[in-house]
Amino acid sequence: MKFPAQTRTRDYWGYLFILPSFLILLVCYLIPMVMDVFFSFTSYNVIQPPRFVGVRNYIQMANNRYLGIALRNTVVYTIIVVPAQTVISLAFAVILARVCNNKWGRFVRSSLFIPVITSMVLVGLIWRIFLATDGGMINYFLGILNINPINWLGRKNTSMISICLVAIWKSVGYFLVIFFAGVMDIPRVLYEAAVVDGANGFQKMMKITLPMLKPVTYLVVTLGTIWSFQVFDLVYVMTGGGPGFATSTLVLNIYNTAFKEFRLGLASAISLFLLLIIFLISYLQKKGFRED
């Protein structure tokens, strides 16, 4: 038995229940997004009131060599990290699900998850020490193989790749868990039917596993890209953007512009740029995955 009239009067309680979260989202997400737009047209250093400067910040952005380097580095980082972590975690997930879906497999997943729960700062710190030129763990092992010590984080061509490898090392376990859940969700019947039709392992992989994992792969690639574009902690701790500007990234550039140079207007413009890039990437990936 229903009480429509009574229920309707009570329904305005709904507003009261969402009020606290709405206020927080308003202050911490919605207003800042609008402010990004507003401050991007101003010159502002927190102490003096913001001054309207038109599109000056955008012109500066377009001509800023360091921002260009940071953008290029961020793209390079993303292009290395996202495909690598996606392929490795996918391969691990499929093999673990098919071959060792047992206690050992669970232990493997649990172990690979340990880097995931640790902070980027911690990971950056310990790897910075492991990668030290003199007395670092990596060079110690290379020394055993008679390879001369390498200045991993101090040289232009090795610093970025070192950071990428650490990032991949940290996140494989995370995407593995997502992929593993995806593989386990594929109905067994599909494989049984394929066996009846005489399909081999490779065909099952190409015709069943990969197509069925498409939504999960979309999720992993999109999340991976969004997070890669926001890389900061690892770079800040491991190299501080150096040597020179070899590992400076977009968010590091925003951080330095806002909190080292106190040019918050310009930093807002770069933030808005980052926001648009990420929205665009999410949109394009969604479209790309839907089409094929």
């Binding site: 925003i254 806002a258 930093a267």
Partner: peptide
């Protein structure tokens, strides 16, 4: 919509607030 907003892109205005 707020879930889709990347945190690092609104750090500066949030700091101002």
């Amino acid at each position: 919509l707020t879930i889709m907003i990347p945190g690092q892109a609104i750090t500066v205005p949030l700091y101002i607030i």
